[in-house]
Amino acid sequence: MDIELKLIRNTLIIRLKGEFDMLKAEKIRRQIDERLQDDQVRNLVFNLEKVSFVDSSGLGVIIGRYKKVKEKDGNMYIVGAQPVVKKILVLSGINKLVPLFKNEQEIMKV
């Protein structure tokens, strides 16, 4: 799984690609947490457009980062979840905490 991190002002955009399971979860968690130590990073955007699979290990990373962002009084968003991934997000209830958007441009409008 590929990960691309991009900082725009105080928002870290995390673009993931591939299957987000236990094999990838730990590595991705570490990379994001490293960036979250930077005071400048307050908001997170998970771009899941190119994620074809997610299970509870992947979801655990997303939920865990939500808690960290809230500690920093920041916001978190999820964009581009494909139907198969969106179904899992909804079943987990994460969508009640983290707003889901179609793409990164939609968030910029908010």
Binding site: S56, L59, G60, G64, I88, L91
Partner: peptide, 13 residues
């Protein structure tokens, strides 16, 4: 604690 315990929920669902 870093995991959510959702595994069995998904399996059941």
């Amino acid at each position: 604690p870093s995991r959510m315990g959702l595994g069995f929920t998904f399996m059941k669902s």
